[in-house]
Simulated assay, not measured.
Amino acid sequence: MDGSIEILGGFPFCATIPANFYSFPYTGYDWCLMVPIEPKIPIYKVFAYIFHWKAFALTVLIFVLLSVSLGIADRISNSQQTLIRRNFFFNIDCFRGILGQSIFEVPNASWSTKIIYLLIFLLGIMIVTSYDAFLQSFMTEPPTENMIRSFDDLKASGIKAYIYKTDFNTMLSVRPDMNQYLNSFEVETNFEKYKENPNTKYAYSTNTVLWGIFKNQQTFFDQQLFRWSADLCIWNNIQAAFALNDNSIYRNVLNMHILEVQSAGFIDFWMTKAFYELMELGRIQKMNINNLSDFRSLSVEDLKWIWIMIGFAYWVAILTFVGEIFVLKMKNYGQN
């Protein structure tokens, strides 16, 4: 700002230059990273993904409470009935009722027992319908795994973020805390080749203006490749303005023009039309990247955890059966 130039092209506010050498800001933007869309979890993990451990623990707790309540109610209804301890916390009728199977109901049951039966049926309906709803939803659109929500997640994922050399130096000057994430950035001098052919193995440094252009370009893809991450911002609310001399005769006129343009919505209109104008000028190609996975029906591998659970249940049943035979033989041997 030596006075040789009356008005300088727009650039962000700089702390080393006094504010009176700037016009009104004509736009604001954020400087963040756009990261590749995380892969979907495998189908075989969906069955276990639905039942979160907290929901599972709550279901077990309710089941135990219903089992205890049913055992106490049966004992009160029939005082001559012997209370079996092993059925006190794990009532087989309660378990079958939750799974929607038929159960043995006590004849001439009291009102408290009937209410417990009703609660068991309601719990079974809630579990089955909610699980089925989540299963159909996740089968249609499986959730993603290991989402990148912070620079620590980016560092742990091993994904590199491409950034201009000049932007890299600016980042270190405005964000000294980013020194701990230097290994997560790949400094480049020629950035254009990555804009034309983006690689989903990398993240990219960009701002809200450029992201709006690439976001429109992704509408021509079969599936979105990148997402804007507000959690991975390097610099928020950057104000862009024109630099001009402190005593410039154009200051008031320029400031008034900026205010009129903003109030008319021209800035937002230009941002929206920027992609289509660049495409008409041949600066952006309307390419189509096919990254959709082919639809396929469920296979044996997709039911891996189901088969493992069934095999484990059969193994426990066999061990229990062998154990009962062994205990019976030992009792008969002791009596003889």
Rank of each mutant, 00 (worst) to 15 (best):
Y117A: 03
I127V: 13
S110C: 03
Q335V: 11
N190T: 13
E6F: 11
T320K: 07
Y44H: 07
E260C: 05
A57P: 01
N183G: 10
E188Q: 10
N108G: 06
N146K: 13
C32D: 07
E277N: 01
A274I: 09
R85P: 03
C14F: 05
N291V: 03
G71R: 00
L281D: 05
A15G: 13
T320R: 13
D74G: 09
N91H: 00
I127N: 06
F90P: 01
R85F: 15
E6P: 04
L58M: 08
N146P: 04
N332I: 12
I234R: 03
G212P: 04
V128Q: 12
A48R: 15
V46F: 09
G282D: 10
V106D: 11
F168V: 13
F191H: 07
W315Y: 12
M126P: 00
L232A: 05
I17W: 02
I267D: 00
M139H: 13
P25G: 05
Y250Q: 00
N199W: 09
C32N: 13
T200R: 14
F221R: 06
Y131F: 10
A15R: 15
T129G: 06
W31V: 05
Q223K: 15
F214E: 01
I238D: 08
L66A: 11
Y164F: 05
P198V: 12
F221S: 02
I115Y: 14
L66M: 08
L225Y: 09
I43G: 03
F191T: 15
A73M: 06
G334E: 05
F104L: 05
E192G: 05
A48E: 12
K215P: 04
K215L: 09
W31N: 06
C14G: 03
N20L: 11
I325W: 01
A156K: 15
R85N: 11
T170R: 06
P143I: 02
A133W: 10
N197C: 12
K329Q: 08
Y194G: 11
A203P: 13
R227C: 13
F321C: 06
N207G: 10
S248T: 01
N78F: 12
R283I: 05
Y164T: 13
L135V: 14
I306C: 07
N146M: 04
T144I: 02
E280Q: 09
D294I: 15
G323P: 02
L99C: 11
L83A: 14
E324N: 12
T82W: 02
N199R: 06
K54H: 14
I43A: 08
D152V: 01
M178Q: 14
F266G: 00
A109W: 08
S69F: 13
V128N: 13
Y29M: 13
T129D: 07
F121T: 11
G97L: 05
F21T: 13
I249V: 02
M34D: 04
N207T: 02
T140W: 03
M126Q: 07
A264P: 01
N207F: 06
N199L: 08
L61K: 05
D93N: 12
R149Q: 10
Y250A: 04
H257M: 10
S297R: 13
I310K: 00
T59K: 10
I120P: 03
G212I: 00
F312S: 14
